[in-house]
Computed example of a mutant assay.
Amino acid sequence: MKSDQRNPGSGTLWLYSTGEHACSYLEDRSARTVFVDPAFPVSNAHYSRLITQGMRRSGHFIYQPGCAGCSSCKSLRIPVADFCANRAQRRCWNRNQDIRIIQRPPVFVQQHFALYRHYMSHRHPGSGMDEHDPERYMEFLVSNWSDTVFLEMRRGQDLLGVAVTDRLADGLSAVYTFFHPELARRSLGTFGILAQIEHARMNGLAYVYLGYWIAESPKMRYKATFRPHEIHTGGRWLRTP
């Protein structure tokens, strides 16, 4: 059903709301999702504005939680210029200095896909994502309007991980990171975020957007360890020291 109108800077778009469904993060909750009209001709410039309003993309869909009586999902972003790594993050960065970050275009690469399937089979077995074929894999990570890059993590010729990120007007948006699950000691998920912070810093970008954070969800708590960070709440960004 139609739920709202929004002007992202060029034309008015409609927002639609789904019916209630089970929450993916809080077992005792139901959820509702608000998403941008798929027929609207979205551009990366539109998305750059909408993400500052707390929205997010998955594939070519732009969405935000719209749950009645619950506001646990908060958009979180890191102000790059002020970011200060904690001890664990500094150790992670130093431990992985033998890794090269190589920027690649958002095209299908069999080696990337094989690593993605391997990661999903270990981290998210039975989720459906571990059964993605090449087409669904690319639909999940890339859209035809986003300015997306794949940041490879390589040690020599070995591919250790890939951080998929969107380039926006004011920053980067972390889309998804996958890596060899056997390399737990390297903390490649954390390293992928640190690499995006450094990539944003080198390119003069103000923020790295980490998507939605839920304080009650153990899966999401790692995002709040990157400090300082800003939370989108009540229509504005508030900094947590």
Results as ranks from 00 to 15, higher is better:
residue 72 S to Y: 00
residue 40 F to S: 04
residue 19 G to C: 11
residue 46 H to V: 00
residue 39 A to V: 08
residue 58 S to Y: 08
residue 39 A to M: 07
residue 50 L to G: 02
residue 30 S to T: 15
residue 39 A to I: 00
residue 67 C to Q: 12
residue 73 C to Q: 06
residue 15 L to V: 11
residue 14 W to S: 11
residue 32 R to C: 12
residue 21 H to D: 13
residue 69 G to R: 12
residue 15 L to Y: 04
residue 55 M to C: 01
residue 35 F to V: 03
residue 50 L to K: 08
residue 14 W to L: 12
residue 16 Y to R: 06
residue 38 P to H: 07
residue 22 A to T: 14
residue 60 H to I: 08
residue 20 E to W: 10
residue 19 G to M: 11
residue 71 S to C: 15
residue 56 R to V: 05
residue 50 L to Q: 06
residue 67 C to K: 06
residue 62 I to K: 05
residue 18 T to Q: 03
residue 55 M to R: 04
residue 70 C to I: 11
residue 42 V to G: 04
residue 75 S to E: 05
residue 36 V to A: 08
residue 41 P to G: 10
residue 57 R to T: 00
residue 49 R to D: 02
residue 70 C to M: 12
residue 65 P to R: 02
residue 43 S to Q: 11
residue 72 S to N: 00
residue 72 S to C: 06
residue 15 L to I: 14
residue 25 Y to N: 10
residue 64 Q to E: 04
residue 20 E to K: 14
residue 74 K to H: 14
residue 20 E to Q: 15
residue 26 L to H: 02
residue 30 S to D: 12
residue 34 V to D: 10
residue 52 T to K: 11
residue 69 G to T: 12
residue 34 V to G: 05
residue 62 I to M: 15
residue 34 V to E: 14
residue 32 R to V: 03
residue 14 W to R: 10
residue 55 M to V: 04
residue 58 S to D: 04
residue 66 G to D: 09
residue 69 G to L: 09
residue 58 S to E: 09
residue 44 N to Y: 03
residue 64 Q to I: 07
residue 57 R to I: 01
residue 70 C to Q: 09
residue 18 T to R: 02
residue 49 R to I: 00
residue 16 Y to A: 05
residue 21 H to N: 08
residue 20 E to Y: 14
residue 65 P to F: 02
residue 75 S to L: 05
residue 39 A to E: 01
residue 53 Q to G: 08
residue 46 H to Y: 03
residue 23 C to V: 12
residue 30 S to V: 14
residue 16 Y to P: 06
residue 63 Y to S: 02
residue 27 E to G: 14
residue 73 C to T: 02
residue 33 T to C: 10
residue 18 T to L: 05
residue 19 G to Q: 13
residue 60 H to A: 13
residue 29 R to N: 14
residue 37 D to M: 02
residue 38 P to S: 09
residue 59 G to N: 13
residue 26 L to V: 13
residue 75 S to G: 04
residue 34 V to W: 09
residue 67 C to M: 10
residue 27 E to N: 14
residue 28 D to E: 14
residue 52 T to I: 06
residue 16 Y to V: 03
residue 74 K to L: 14
residue 30 S to Y: 13
residue 61 F to N: 08
residue 31 A to D: 08
